[in-house]
Design a protein around this nucleic acid. Structure first.
Lengths: 256, 256
DNA sequence: CCTCATATCTTGTTATGACGAGTAATGACA
DNA sequence: TGTCATTACTCGTCATAACAAGATATGAGG
């Protein structure tokens, strides 16, 4: 059932937000609230054209974006279907720790251990695209979830930026959000490297675990939207208290 | 169409591969071989239209795909630019271990430890979308890189499929490639969870490390292209010998 | 009953055309 | 000289149109 060809939806052509964005939002809501059930359904492109009163290219842009988000998938010649696994949507999204936890309803708190200018090793300076002798700021923070320490974050940024950041409310706000909302710096992608290690004495003290406990180490180099490296971090997560989740796509062999 | 300000390129309209795919390939090659240098350049859309003799929509589809791959980025009102960091392209691509290593020029070898039907715990059966009492096959393999053990892979699949897989040449081929190339099963996305743990006695033996050494554990649930869960794996990587790399994108707040 | 061509769904690709919006250089004007 | 409107680029959005290609139901012919 649920066949509502006659249904008419209103999208505002004069709105500042694009039509396909509005349509995307409406369809996403219907998927998330169950109007469109899992693994079947989804009106065809021509039905959506009629019901929203837009052209096919607009419908396809909306559907294409939803597919990128993982909410739907298409089968050539058959139709468009709703994906089931709502489990962890958007796990490939770049987020700060507090941001990610807040989205899941957890409260976080950060304790600033130290902030000081350091002479970067060659590796760090190079990653940030700075001159070999350019000074960088090192910010050390321990992040708490429900009063238990979860991770030690060591952040390296260019010195001037780091001094500015050190004055901010790092206890309650993610650096990512400060950069974007307060400084107006648009962030782009990030490159991550993940491996496992054992807690040394310093790490054990900060994370309140035994020396030799398993630790997940993540190296993250974050770029601005226009591709300049901005922020290099070492994140040390308690192996017993944290799982890093993500989603990857299979790229099908085509012309390669 | 006698138009060539700088260069004229030939794309085959009759080819079985779409025009935008051909154009995407040509542009990717030029970026990778340095014809288009990093962080500047890139002809405008209208120039590409003229040089390839195609419409704007086709050019935009090619550029959009390259942007998703991370090779280029666009700035509204200014132009399209080449991204610099060739470091690890396509790290969000879902790949088997052997596949990934082969792409980097390494040879791998797998040793099949065991393959047997098991009564799945509730967690595994549910993940695979099977009935609670449906039998599954468990395949255990140790993966070697340069004759050193790198990981222990424990794979769970539906029983019939698992028995078929057990007869294949698992020593030299990735399960992913067998599924796709031999069985014609198109793979879609995968959901991953990563954490850190310590090697127990069994793990230590297989990975040839000390008991208590750091181990990166990855849980991976792989879906077919049409969204059915197919393959659930536990991957245990030596923390001292393996780094998991990936790239994530910042999603900018829009309508949320 | 089974097979196969056909009609008719679906999504995929591509062209042409238009206007909006952001960026930047130019030149007129105060 | 400094400010501002103009203009000419760029990418972003959207409409209309057509055909290709995959999937499926239908019906004719064996």
């Amino acid at each position: 059932m649920g066949n509502d060809k006659t249904r008419k939806d209103t999208v505002l052509a004069l709105s500042p937000v694009p039509l396909y964005t509005q349509i995307k939002g409406i369809l996403r809501d219907r998927i998330l609230d169950g109007s469109y059930q899992a693994h079947q359904q989804m009106p065809s492109e021509s039905e959506l054209m009629a019901s929203f009163g837009v052209s096919r290219i607009t419908v396809r842009q909306a559907l294409g974006d939803l597919q990128k988000e993982g909410l739907i998938f298409k089968i050539h010649g058959k139709g468009t279907y709703v994906s089931k696994p709502k489990a962890f949507q958007n796990a490939t999204e770049l987020m700060g720790f507090g941001e990610a936890m807040a989205q899941m309803g957890y409260e976080t708190f950060n304790r600033l251990i130290s902030s000081k200018p350091v002479a970067p090793g060659a590796a760090i300076g190079e990653r940030l695209g700075l001159a070999a002798d350019a000074p960088v700021m090192e910010l050390k923070r321990v992040r708490y979830l429900n009063r238990a320490p979860i991770s030690l974050d060591v952040t390296y940024v260019e010195k001037a930026l780091g001094e500015r950041l050190a004055k901010e409310d790092l206890a309650h706000r993610d650096i990512f959000l400060i950069l974007e909302n307060d400084y107006g710096i648009a962030l782009g992608r990030a490159d991550l490297q993940i491996d496992a290690m054992l807690a040394d004495r310093v790490l054990a003290k900060h994370l309140e675990v035994e020396e030799g406990a398993p630790v997940l180490r993540i190296e993250r180099l974050t770029y601005t939207a226009d591709g300049r490296p901005l922020d290099f971090e070492h994140l040390y997560y308690r192996g017993d208290a944290f799982q890093y989740r993500m989603r990857t796509e299979r790229i099908h062999p085509q012309e390669k």
